[in-house]
Amino acid sequence: VGRFLPEKYKPAYYDSTVSFLHPVTGLFPHANSAELFIWLGVAQGFSKAGGEQSQLALMFLLTGLIVILMRGFITEKISMHLFKKEGLTHILNDDK
């Protein structure tokens, strides 16, 4: 999907897309199997403390989405600054 974006938005899109694999682990463990053992350990401790795993998964997802949104905005601002600093105005003016 990112191939259809203008070049100036691709760094933020890529950062957000790659970061999305982390918060969905609680709801869809197969999405990022490398983090499954960490998730299961945290979920077990949360259950022993009296919490529900579904509540933890939703909090993890919502927190992750907020952080991803912030990362996307910050990456976009940094990218725009670096494009201007390097004189890459053809990227900034490209509105395909």
Results as ranks from 00 to 15, higher is better:
V1L: 13
V1M: 13
V1T: 11
G2M: 02
R3D: 03
R3K: 00
R3Y: 00
F4M: 03
F4H: 02
F4E: 01
L5S: 06
L5Q: 04
P6R: 15
P6T: 14
P6V: 14
P6L: 10
E7Y: 06
K8P: 02
Y9E: 05
P11F: 00
P11W: 03
A12L: 12
A12T: 05
A12H: 07
Y13H: 01
Y14W: 08
S16I: 07
V18E: 02
S19F: 02
S19T: 13
S19C: 09
F20V: 04
F20G: 09
H22T: 07
T25G: 04
G26A: 06
G26P: 11
L27E: 06
F28A: 14
P29L: 05
P29Y: 04
H30V: 12
A31F: 05
A31M: 13
A31G: 02
A31T: 12
N32M: 15
N32W: 07
S33W: 09
A34S: 12
E35D: 15
L36S: 08
F37I: 04
I38V: 06
I38E: 02
I38Q: 03
W39L: 09
W39I: 08
L40H: 08
G41Y: 07
G41D: 15
V42M: 11
V42P: 05
A43P: 02
G45M: 08
G45S: 08
F46T: 13
S47E: 14
S47V: 09
S47G: 05
K48L: 11
A49V: 14
G50W: 06
G51R: 00
E52P: 04
E52Q: 03
Q53M: 12
S54T: 09
S54A: 14
Q55G: 08
Q55S: 12
L56G: 07
L56N: 03
L56V: 06
A57G: 12
M59P: 14
M59E: 15
M59K: 14
F60Y: 03
L61Y: 01
T63C: 07
G64A: 07
L65M: 14
I66R: 15
I68R: 01
I68D: 00
L69K: 13
L69G: 15
L69I: 10
M70V: 11
M70A: 10
M70Y: 08
R71C: 12
G72W: 09
F73L: 14
I74Q: 14
I74P: 10
T75I: 13
T75M: 15
E76N: 15
K77I: 02
I78Y: 07
I78V: 13
I78Q: 00
I78R: 03
S79P: 01
S79M: 12
M80K: 02
H81K: 14
H81F: 10
L82N: 05
L82S: 07
L82C: 08
L82V: 12
F83C: 04
F83A: 04
K84E: 11
K85F: 05
E86H: 12
L88W: 01
L88F: 01
T89A: 07
H90F: 03
H90W: 01
I91A: 02
I91L: 11
L92F: 01
D94E: 12
D95L: 09
K96V: 09
